[in-house]
Design a protein around this nucleic acid. Sequence first.
DNA 1: AGCACGCCGACT
DNA 2: GTCGGCGTGCTC
Length: 730
Amino acid sequence: MPILRIAVAKPLRTTFDYLPPLDCDDASIAKLQPGTRIEVPFGRAQLVGILVNRAPESEVNQTKLKRATRIIDPISLLPKPLFELCLWASQYYAHPIGEVLTLAFPPLLRKGVETNAPHNAIKLTPEGRLAPQGILRSPKQAALIERLQRHEATRSALKAEGFSSSIIKALIDKGLAIPCRIEDSEFSPSESDPQPRLNSQQQFAVAQLSQHAGFKASLLYGITGSGKTEVYLQTIANTIASGAQAMVLVPEIALTPQTAARFQGRFGACVGVLHSGLTETQRAREWERARTGKLQVLLGTRSALFTPFQNLGLIVVDEEHDSAYKQQDGFRYHARDLAVKRAQIEQCPIILGSATPSLETISNVNIGRFEQYTLNTRAKAASLPSWQIIDVRQQSLEAGLSQTLIDACHHTLGKGEQALLFLNRRGFAHTLLCHDCGWVAECDNCDSRMVIHKRHNRLRCHHCQAQKPLPKTCPSCHSNHWQGVGYGTERAELALQSLFPHTPIHRIDSDTVGSASQLDHVLDAINANQTGCLILGTQMLAKGHDLAKVTLVGIVDTDALLFSSDFRAEERLGQLLTQVSGRSGRGDRPGTVMLQTHHPDAEIFHQVIHQDYRETASSLLHARHQTGLPPFGQIVMVHADSKDPSEAERFLNSARHTLTSSLPQNHVLIGPLPAPLSKRAGKFRYQLTWLAPHEKNLHRFVHSIADTLTRLPHKSELSWAIDIDPHDFL
DNA sequence: AGCACGCCGACT
DNA sequence: GTCGGCGTGCTC
Ligand SMILES: [Zn+2]
Ligand SMILES: [Zn+2]
């Protein structure tokens, strides 16, 4: 008796065997493809399961076998390559198969909804198309057939042409026509923006990237303003011309209406966008358009990676170094890495673009696994910015700004130009300190200090949801002599307003700019400014937004990154400095970057300033090589947290025991150690770090470890997770 | 993850 | 005597 092996969207690392539904004959069972959605009874619930494979018989006790309720999809909606990718990812990241496969479906379809969007149109059946003239006695019906011979049409269009719904129904009842769906976009083609001329580097890159049809991974290394996007656009145009589809991934923060408009302006209605603001129905609609080949370009963030395509011919991952591609909880996949895997499975080219590529990608270029194309001429800039390090030791600072930087701002504003101040900390001040006794406001649920937010007059924890009003008096000594320590963007904004009373100041952080479209708004206002303004912002500003009038960039404080315990801190600092400095000096004016620091001699600063990013990267890579850290080795991190102060540590200790016995000599286990943020949202956090040399079979190890961990006795309030290739140690 | 089964403390 | 605590194990 044939058996269906089905995965369900639960954190269970197995598939479940089911008997086929009763109304299903052997021939149709034999035709079922992996990825088919099948409704099954599971425990006491009815779930949408996903077929993983078929088997002649089951090892499960016959009496336990249940019968699947119904085959939802007559044919699988997941193309083979995508199914294969999910399987691979489930293995590699040791994540339950059902939870991975479910990501390949939009939320609407996970609930078992039929894929077919509501029918809004009519087309002829094969019989209808071949129907000889005069077979119908009704002239109206014959006219409709003739009309439909030319083209399928929407019901509303037909109604406008004088065909009533009873005529339509008559044809459908006779089996000559059937309802179908026509997407709005298919009948509204629009004018497309012209293709700008490319410089010779861009031309070369487009030619090389378009040449190859099979798998080929390429780094597009293009400094800020060198026109990476135009290379994507023209390569995509070639892909479309060859009849294939393209998938473009961008970091969440970069998926603004402006970005979408650039793609839509070029390719019109055949562009689909998957952004977080879509309703479930809209999301399902775009998914279906990609799957059935009705769109040629899909623009989306991390999760768009799992969209099915009819004929995928190109993948683009923009800002490939961005850590937003790594999912930080649940299924902790890295969309850039999986995108490369997908390109390999789909046998299509992939472009990874960045001005500051990740060390992983640079290393892949070095060993010849990836090609590299370079764009190093800025379209509108005379020269690269000049750097100045400001040693702030012993200097008196006003609002965290040195006099040198303040003077430079005045000078820039005096010329009617713009200055951008980069401060990677939001809120007012990062610590509330009692000046009389030294008491500091800490979060009750986390091992961290609460940040002062002046506008709401509250203390907020940036690691959990906790917040409370600012205390009037010190709980320890009842003094009211408070001091705010440190500068966040909110405080810097206030200080700047008194320092520059007549200058517009735009503050850009996640407290002032909640969505991508709001960001677009502020950026428009900045670009429209003619008389000079100050821009104050966090991380959000580092990305390649176009700020044409900025000639001065001030980096207020990045010293914290110099001492981070995280092994990627230096890489991130290098990328941040390079990206932020790229904001300076477009147009015909050269830019200046001023860096304030208490550590003017730090190696990384001088590397970034005096060397090309690639040289900085190669010395960072050298250090990684010495220590066996990625990309020269692999890290597996086992996290555990619990409300009980010692439970997580105890659990990881027993995890370590089971690991030690089965691990080869050259693998290293560190910990369990308290996480750098040792308490978060009321839970005590520990982690066990596992350093492994590169080997193909690591995922087998990890898989069996995950299995043993599941069986390890633990209190119900303890939760644990495995993070393959973790992005940081937090 | 949910959910049921099951075995010990403090209530009517 | 029972109501319910959550520890343990299962879901085809
Ligand atoms: Zn005090
Ligand atoms: Zn907190």
